[in-house]
Design a protein around this nucleic acid. Sequence first.
DNA 1: TATGAATGAGGTTTCATTCAT
DNA 2: CATGAATGAAACCTCATTCAT
Lengths: 227, 227, 227, 227
Amino acid sequence: MTDWSVKYKDRSDQMTTEGKRRARGRSADPARTARTRAAILQAALATFLERGFEGARMADVASRAGLAKGTLYLHFADKTALFEFVLRELISEPLSRFRAAPPAPDETPREALERLVLPLLRDLERSGRATVLRLILVEGSRFPELAAMHRRLVIDPVMAAIRTKVQAAADAGKPELLPLARFPQLMAAPIVMATVWNGLWSGRDPLDTEAVFSAFLDLVFGPSPAR
Amino acid sequence: MTDWSVKYKDRSDQMTTEGKRRARGRSADPARTARTRAAILQAALATFLERGFEGARMADVASRAGLAKGTLYLHFADKTALFEFVLRELISEPLSRFRAAPPAPDETPREALERLVLPLLRDLERSGRATVLRLILVEGSRFPELAAMHRRLVIDPVMAAIRTKVQAAADAGKPELLPLARFPQLMAAPIVMATVWNGLWSGRDPLDTEAVFSAFLDLVFGPSPAR
Amino acid sequence: MTDWSVKYKDRSDQMTTEGKRRARGRSADPARTARTRAAILQAALATFLERGFEGARMADVASRAGLAKGTLYLHFADKTALFEFVLRELISEPLSRFRAAPPAPDETPREALERLVLPLLRDLERSGRATVLRLILVEGSRFPELAAMHRRLVIDPVMAAIRTKVQAAADAGKPELLPLARFPQLMAAPIVMATVWNGLWSGRDPLDTEAVFSAFLDLVFGPSPAR
Amino acid sequence: MTDWSVKYKDRSDQMTTEGKRRARGRSADPARTARTRAAILQAALATFLERGFEGARMADVASRAGLAKGTLYLHFADKTALFEFVLRELISEPLSRFRAAPPAPDETPREALERLVLPLLRDLERSGRATVLRLILVEGSRFPELAAMHRRLVIDPVMAAIRTKVQAAADAGKPELLPLARFPQLMAAPIVMATVWNGLWSGRDPLDTEAVFSAFLDLVFGPSPAR
DNA sequence: TATGAATGAGGTTTCATTCAT
DNA sequence: CATGAATGAAACCTCATTCAT
């Protein structure tokens, strides 16, 4: 929704009489452009994840996207712009899903927490985006605005939601949950832990993030009733 | 204990009976060499922490150490060797302190866990070595042997110790601790979380790692008795 | 005939049916690439001849070729690859000319030898390639594969041809030629001598290679009849 | 005999009161120095032969000589001075032996040539100095003064001697030797050829230089009578 | 839009040389 | 005389970026 046109070279206004020249090619410009851009994004994400910002090679991104190096620069001013764009995409997208989670009325604290957290987890798992956390972790300190943005858009809302829910439960007769109200980050700790773990010794004894999270809930709330 | 002399050009101890067969023109006292090496290590650690492996510039390391670029290569074959040496130093040193922790007999599970974990925490805090965890997290996947070494020397022993202790407690009438026996990593989760957090939004709302860990223990075992 | 494309980054012939599936934005005509490569080769030859392998500076090669340093690496992986390519070119090309020499029937031994050797001499003289022999002499022992290749492609065939011809003459009543059958290298000796001589005291009393070779033949066969 | 003291750091006059200080060490300064210098020469020769001037590393020379790098600079101002000194030694030394060869009266031309050339050959063979020709060949064009010196001290006298002897033989009824009078270099051709050959494909089918030279004489003068 | 050869600043590494001991 | 750690100029090579086609 935001307009990155300057930085990201959204050149949609540079040639108004577009349709006239090249009558031959009906190859839908905007659709094609969108596809190209998606390919770059995909390729850039993979490359940045594997090598980090400094280690990533524009040539790798290009060839992964099936494009020539020069083409990248038609879409992004430079490597930094590409990196920031990738992170922005990855930061803002999961949030919409998180927000989209159904409100849900009379639920136990554990159920509420699972409702809040599990969609995020599922999203993290799917399509390699799980590792984005690692990417932010890795490069965050060198792109402070992006880290701040991530915190503002994702972290703080989630923390606030957890704190609110937990505080309510504590007030309703569960004072043993108060540490969670003080440090809602504890809720994310198992997920961060598992993500880091899986990124680190790739292959050996991977952790099932959801299982870890369930075990954590069992630890805090006692063993899950049914399931 | 291991001898990295080939890779790391450790030219010491080649002449054990120092004073006796001292060659004609021998000069360069080993103390000076050790000091130089320590300066490089210090400078390299700082630089790698700030910029990561690829982002770190050998020129920066050199000037930070107050040396010429060429001098680095007198002590380390190349950038990779320097990086690996830094990590090895940082991986193996804390372990010795960890091992030095007193055994302790009749203690509650919580006490045992604190005894196991708090020395690591303290060490993490002191002398900026807390950030080393971040360095391993960040570059670990690109230096798999180092990550494996870290796991073997540090992680696996700690996990095994936690699992043993927790399993004993569970057998002794605390079955609610079983999730910890299954995923001893949960014990480290708050620490990893806090370290990552503090490294990420440097400055804003830093987390007190020990407080977070205490809160976690409170959450799992109920509020701490005395304190 | 062999395909050096990997080592030498020969990006040609990857799309044989050129005109047809010409990608959207294809530009860079192959002729231009060939010209660039030829310029590099030319410049590299001159530089290697003047300074030897170690003494040659890539920057010199580049500026001589009217290119930026980086461009060299677009065509050759490194200095060694460039050097090897230059030598290969120079080794294999003269051979084709040598092979092209007409068979010729009823000729005297001397005529046969002249037919075998003179084309090589002429080629040596033309276009400065005479000095290539010096380059091989100079760097050959440090690039044993190339020296071996040179021997296999050029030296051994020539030696075998000389030996065959001389042996036949000896059998046909010229036993005084037997030393040549034993050491066909003697045939090349005057040429090597002259080449070395001319390369060594550049300028002072240069030797006319063909005249030296003729004198050698006179010495062995008696004075030339007609001429 | 020449005085290289400036260039080669013959510091014999810098400290006249030498004998006074350090009464302890009777370790004969000049003898020791000579030995050190000889060791350097030996090491430098080997290194220059293996790698050429640019390829040779001062560190290699030093360690081969069993000395520290710095010590080289006590004896030679720089790499060039060392190289020039090595070549001068090698150029002037064989000459003395050559000159020392006994005059010899009534001998056949072949005998005279053998007398002139064989000592040089023997010297070339002994102690790896055979390859010095290759060294001059390789670096000669980059050290023109040395090449010129070599020519003046070694080549020209030998050529003149050969020419004189051959001319006399030709006048005395052997006109078929006239080509040798015109190009006395032909006499050296087999030796140069063999030296180059042996340096080039080190190992495979080496040539026996003396045998080659004998074969050459057989070719020119007819088969050797007795031997 | 797309291409990919070309660029050149900048990074890593080497090695001849110096100098305090 | 001898040492070898230290130096830093200079070499090789990389890679983000440009631009003619």
